[in-house]
Design a protein around this nucleic acid. Structure first.
Lengths: 156, 156
DNA sequence: CGCATCTAGTTGCTTAGTCAACTACCTGGT
DNA sequence: ACCAGGTAGTTGACTAAGCAACTAGATGCG
């Protein structure tokens, strides 16, 4: 017996559009950033997270969680960005295992350089074709998905 | 002067939810497939494309476009899947440069094995929390984004 | 207190995927 | 018919990111 509840036509249609549009979007954003500002989308996002954090710094672990990657991924990303002069590492006083990643001047400058072009691209490829009504529905939907998935997220 | 039209709060909120939910979803789908069926999400999608194509085969170039990756990426993916016995390569009669990638028996079996668990995961993490109304709005939105981006997609 | 267990971060190893360059082939214009 | 320029697929070199294993430090329980 086949207990599987396959996707119906509407669901299938959404699924394909979502996958395709999203991959296309992420690729275009990455390309735009690399081309115009010499920074990858992934690295850019890390800088944004740091820039918004209290004292512009975050623990490695929290960075990994917030950016939906792994601890080792963050180690490597921070090492890379440290070499580029965008972030600094600082030891943690209260937890000697720990390390802070701090936004450096170079990183702030890079953010300022990359930000406008990036936002333009996000707008052009996404928000320009969305109605306020779409925005409401999508926000609700993605929030719900996020919540659902955060429930059973296990360490990696 | 700053001509940049930054995202307002609602836009920002959607943007973050979308990024976060999507990355989480893609990761969970990949993990589920690897764990339960020994196939990556990327490879699974290629098999799906082939299975739906006329005669269950596609030209390499078309596969690359359809899966939003690059020609070289598809070359390597097909090589890998050929070794696994999931697809076959066949020369193209009418265009001697060309090559077909064909779904093999192993691939069809792998699809049958992986499909149900995958659909369950997609349902659980996405469609279960969407209303029919969400589905309509999102489909319209992603279709529009897709169209917009397909316009100025250049070869890679 | 002392030990078992957990957590933070890093690293070795491996894999997937990109770009650029290359070969082989196709196509359109003259 | 020929050739200039384009296209299909592959490959070499490289980068990014994941897992598993490891070290060092924290935590809790008897």
């Amino acid at each position: 017996m086949d207990n599987t509840k396959w996707l119906d036509d509407d669901e299938q249609h959404l699924w394909r559009s979502y996958l395709d549009a999203t991959r296309l979007l992420f690729q275009q954003l990455d390309k735009q950033l690399v081309r115009d500002a010499g920074i990858s989308f992934a690295d850019y996002e890390i800088l944004v997270l740091l820039s918004e954090a209290p004292e512009q710094r975050m623990r490695m672990r929290d960075l990994a969680d917030a950016s939906t990657t792994t601890r080792s991924g963050i180690t490597r990303a921070v090492t890379r960005m440290e070499k580029a002069g965008w972030v600094r590492r600082a030891g943690c006083e209260t937890d000697k295992r720990g390390a802070w990643a701090e936004l450096g001047d170079g990183g702030a400058a890079k953010l300022a350089e990359a930000g406008p072009g990036h936002v333009d691209a996000v707008r052009k490829n996404m928000f320009d074709v969305l109605t306020p009504h779409d925005i409401t529905a999508m926000t609700r939907a993605f929030e719900a998905m996020r919540e659902r998935m955060h429930e059973d997220r296990r360490d990696r």
